[in-house]
Design a protein around this nucleic acid. Structure first.
Length: 86
DNA sequence: CTAATGACCATTA
DNA sequence: ATAATGGCCATTA
């Protein structure tokens, strides 16, 4: 567990229900927009189910690679209002 | 230390 | 619309 991961973990776990953030947004919150890649990497390594990784999407609105079984959750999110590619 | 990888992003063709 | 390219960052080998 690294500092960067902790930050990502914190931010991602603070994502409100029905709200989604893109890696770029999280990276921006971290201070640098370019951290998007590292953010994804952190989540990948972290592999925590306590954090709603499914609420983290790409900047173009598409779901990321967190397709581990969150399909239903992703669908639920969609119902919430997370429209993909309007 | 260097090099390589990745759940990315924006630009360009 | 898709495909390819360059760029940045953190982690790992």
């Amino acid at each position: 567990m690294t500092i960067f991961q902790k930050k990502v973990y914190q931010i991602v776990s603070k994502i409100p229900r029905g709200q989604v953030f893109s890696y770029g947004q999280i990276a921006e919150k971290l201070g640098n927009k370019n951290l998007a890649r590292a953010v994804g990497n952190a989540l990948n390594k972290n592999y925590d189910r306590n954090i709603p990784c499914h609420r983290v999407i790409k900047s173009n609105g598409q779901l990321g690679g967190f397709n581990r079984g969150i399909k239903k959750k992703a669908l639920l999110l969609k119902k919430e209002g997370v429209r993909i590619k309007p």
